[in-house]
């Protein structure tokens, strides 16, 4: 169990950032899902739940998902069910259970850059950006590769409404487990493909070579490339070899879904 000396509801983002900067031992609390797993000693826990960061807003150009929106809110938001073939809702729906998704937040899922994250895999295949209080807005892909050195507060995730269709496939050993491998593919009306592979078990990454092959209509080649060019590792849920095989299968399944127009 994490120990906490002080609990503060931040009254403003500036205050939250100030608190965060005041000590290395101060931490922003998201959903609190892993509280009982670690043994960290936290001086001040910073709660962002009073800052109105839980909204999911759709404008003509983009969807803005507040950092404190829960995974369940992502799952049930009407605007997200329709957009991108519903992949954002689909990607979070198998995560543990409704109670868990009522607590886990988008901000914590993204900021923590978890390898197993279903949501990150899906977001990465879309044109998503993260909005950070200090560092400003940056592409999710950049954030995953090179996060700002200074600790920051993620306020929202923004996804451009570029008319993409997307398909999400996850392979799980049992329904409520983490994914052994997650794959998301999307195609824009202009024919621009994106392919992201997560739970490798390292965090989600795009495979540009495979995207090019998808655009050229070579699905088999793309799937093979995704399984060969990205790095895969072994953990309790699967070996690197098995993950490579899954990457190929799931990439093809995403392709099939998008080709058949099902997603």
């Amino acid at each position: 169990m994490i120990s906490i000396q002080e609990y503060r509801f931040a009254e403003s983002l500036d205050e939250a950032l100030q608190l965060l900067d005041a000590s290395r031992k101060n931490r922003v609390i998201g959903g609190g899902m892993w509280l009982r797993l670690g043994h960290a000693s936290v001086k001040t826990a910073i709660d962002l739940s009073r800052l109105g960061l839980d909204r999911i807003e759709a404008t003509e150009d983009e969807i803005a998902i507040g950092a404190m929106a829960t995974l369940r809110e992502v799952e049930t938001a009407p605007c997200l069910r329709e957009l991108f073939g519903g992949v954002l809702a689909e990607s979070v729906s198998p995560i543990v259970g409704v109670q868990f998704r009522n607590m886990a937040t988008v901000g914590a899922s993204v900021y923590s850059r978890y390898g197993f994250s279903d949501l990150l895999t899906a977001l990465l295949a879309l044109d998503a950006r993260v909005e950070l209080r200090r560092a400003g807005t940056m592409a999710l892909e950049d954030f995953l590769k090179n996060p700002p050195e200074k600790r920051d507060i993620l306020t929202s995730v923004r996804v451009r409404r570029d008319g993409r269709r997307a398909a999400y496939r996850t392979f799980r050993r049992s329904a409520t487990d983490f994914g052994v491998l997650n794959v998301c593919a999307s195609i824009s009306p202009e024919g621009d493909w994106r392919l992201s592979v997560g739970a490798r078990p390292a965090r989600a990454a795009r495979c540009l070579e495979a995207e090019a092959l998808l655009a050229a209509g070579d699905a088999a080649g793309a799937a093979k490339t995704a399984s060969e060019k990205l790095r895969y590792g072994s953990n309790l849920r699967g070996s690197a070899e098995y993950r490579r095989a899954l990457a190929e299968v799931l990439t093809l399944r995403c392709w099939d879904a998008l080709k058949e127009g099902k997603a």
Binding site: G97, N102, M103
Partner: peptide
């Protein structure tokens, strides 16, 4: 203890949550 089993489910503002992973302060 790991937010996986649902045994500790209660409602906060009518929404089911896992009380073992929910800070009372919240």
């Amino acid at each position: 203890d790991t937010s996986n089993c649902g045994v500790c489910t209660v409602w906060v503002d009518d929404r089911p949550v896992l009380s073992c992973g929910y800070l009372a302060a919240r």
